[in-house]
Design a protein around this nucleic acid. Sequence first.
DNA 1: CGTGTAAGGAATTCTGACACG
DNA 2: CGTGTAAGGAATTCTGACACG
Lengths: 85, 85
Amino acid sequence: MAVESKVMSIGVVCELTGLTERKIRYYEQRKLIFPDRTKGGNRRYSFQDVEKLMDIHQKMQEGFNTVELRESPRSHRRRCTPIYP
Amino acid sequence: MAVESKVMSIGVVCELTGLTERKIRYYEQRKLIFPDRTKGGNRRYSFQDVEKLMDIHQKMQEGFNTVELRESPRSHRRRCTPIYP
DNA sequence: CGTGTAAGGAATTCTGACACG
DNA sequence: CGTGTAAGGAATTCTGACACG
């Protein structure tokens, strides 16, 4: 129950992940994470979201882009580079 | 790690416990719970705090007062009523 | 004692945009 | 594309007090 509960504000997530609010919101815009919202519109994240964000952070540093991370949530293999003879 | 992490704002705790902000802050004032604080002074609670609050809620309904709940965090036996002959 | 409430301010978060590249 | 930032507003939270009992 606890790890999936959407209970954290973005500020706490920043502290836990080391990411900026800007990045976290951007990854949401790119459909990589899906926080809940309060009635007032504030985002609420779970510990699972925090873990996913740390994964994303790692992959981004390795050179992946947001589209690649969305397409293959688990197996992050670089797409085959098109061959131009 | 997760259950002790102080990550929730008081609003979330209200939703999870069904308690009012007033009650939650009052139980803190009575030394029953000890949330963290952000630099700005906002309270941050853990899932353990939420559980403790639900325990407190239960005990309060059973007629205990805040002093009794502070003195015996586990065994909630009513103190012996003084005998006045 | 335990809790509700109105009051005013402060911390936190939100969106949309401009910027750079 | 991915991210920083300043801007203005809105949601959230804080404290101290008055009230009732």
